[in-house]
Design a protein around this nucleic acid. Structure first.
Lengths: 256, 256
DNA sequence: TGGGTGCTATTGTAGTATGAATAGAGGATC
DNA sequence: GATCCTCTATTCATACTACAATAGCACCCA
């Protein structure tokens, strides 16, 4: 549909890459409902005015992320949400781009709340000088940041450095999810400069605990930091409101 | 190289699917080193006796998992491990298939040790009757299992049911990683029937705590369960041995 | 010696042809 | 009337070819 400048995110320029982004976003936002069948390759590629080859390559990439499934005769079907690879950076990007998807954003912050405090504790045991240096640079960058855009990079670096310090490849991989999430979170919750600066001491507390080798303090400092960040987002978007939390107690219906 | 029966995992039968599996495994096991360039599409597809079309579709799927990166003129390059999507089910499968990759297996169990106790705690707060039913069926299946193969399914169902009970899509996605991990773990650590049966009460303890709505007990019961499972694997493969743990304190060198 | 400038290998895209698989309709059989 | 089988049409799967776009690299010229 409308294809605006879309400066920031990913910015794939190849034909198949654009289709991946466009179709991926449409699927994640629910424009194509799970269980539904996409138009046939021939029809859809013609409609998009691209070759069937490029279209198929895009579909293959989406299939690799668990979003769709192609079978002869049947066609290409959108899989159930429970089958999607939610931990894929692109899927995360699309989910956050989709405007404030409250359900997803809430799940994501809950997930961070599990991972990152534990990662901070591990980092306090295993941090190397290089990791600490990256954290310090992140802190300095945050303290110096004037605009929102100047803030995101250092913030991201700081959290990534902690994940990297754990030496755990799976935790490091989570850093790839953080980028779209942070970028879009800040785009949504437009916290002002004063508020951002207020979180610098919280970040510093995490750093000090890691530097001193105090895992439990690092864990709780990180938990507190994330809690504050969630509060900011809540106020803006309303995720995590009481209604949402209550609703979450029953929808385990999800019947595969 | 040798292409044995490979009964269990994925078992893709399409041409491009086989290439994805084969290339993916070769990259993850290090047969193609990060930073190296694959042979050109024309050469490699000819060598494999498949069309360039199918080969490219396979490459696209691998690119979607962050394993490779294609650019005109340069070719297709294997990306650094830190860029891989380690939380992709296929990548997990290849990493475990690769024989006992101690480094990865240890990271994976550490990761489970972070996620699953927290998930169990959340499940104790949010579980629905359907979730509890699935857990009960899993327990019953484990108790009744004679062979190793009969055990894996119920075990997997049990852990997935807990993740599902959290209602958190990201946690549910982790269930996709569990399947290859459990399958291969049991293939490696061939624990005997008596030992498996000994873990049934541990699983039951987790279930009871969740059923009763006691988050802290669920968390610690799950942590204990995973600890025991890790002990089994350690004895077989040597992951997590003292040497390994000690070595992990410094290799944060991982540059970029 | 330095810098611009083609050459060329490689991926990207397109179009077409053929094959294989299967859902579903329709017919045969009991 | 119900069940099973066959047959067909649709769709994806694979292959092959041609050309465009890109960018590394060597070469040439000032």
């Amino acid at each position: 549909m409308e294809k605006p400048v879309r400066s920031a995110p990913s910015a794939r320029r190849s034909v198949y890459g654009q289709i991946v982004d466009e179709l991926g976003r449409q699927i994640v936002t629910g424009e194509f409902e799970p269980g539904s069948i996409l138009p046939s390759e021939g029809d859809y590629s013609a409609k998009l005015a691209v070759s069937r080859t490029s279209f198929r390559e895009a579909i293959k990439m989406l299939a690799g992320k668990g979003l769709v499934e192609s079978r002869p005769k049947t066609g290409t079907r959108v899989r159930q949400r429970s089958q999607w690879h939610m931990l894929d950076p692109d899927v995360t990007t699309w989910a956050f781009e989709a405007g404030p998807d409250r359900h997803y954003a809430r799940a994501f912050f809950e997930f961070r709340g599990i991972i990152e405090p534990a990662a901070a504790a591990l980092a306090a045991e295993r941090r190397g000088e290089a990791d600490l240096g990256r954290m310090r640079r992140g802190l300095a960058g945050m303290a110096a940041a004037g605009s929102r855009d100047e803030w995101i990079g250092p913030d991201l670096s700081f959290h990534r450095a902690i994940l990297a310090a754990t030496g755990n490849e799976l935790l490091i991989s989570l850093g790839h999810l953080l980028e779209p999430a942070l970028t879009e979170s800040f785009a949504i919750a437009n916290v002002d400069a004063a508020r951002r600066q207020a979180s610098v001491p919280l970040h510093r507390a995490v750093y000090v605990a890691i530097d001193d080798g105090r895992p439990d303090d690092a864990r709780s400092a990180m938990a507190y930091l994330l809690g504050e960040a969630l509060v900011d987002l809540e106020e803006m978007v309303g995720i995590g409101s009481n209604v949402e939390v209550a609703a979450l107690h029953e929808p385990v219906s999800d019947p595969k």
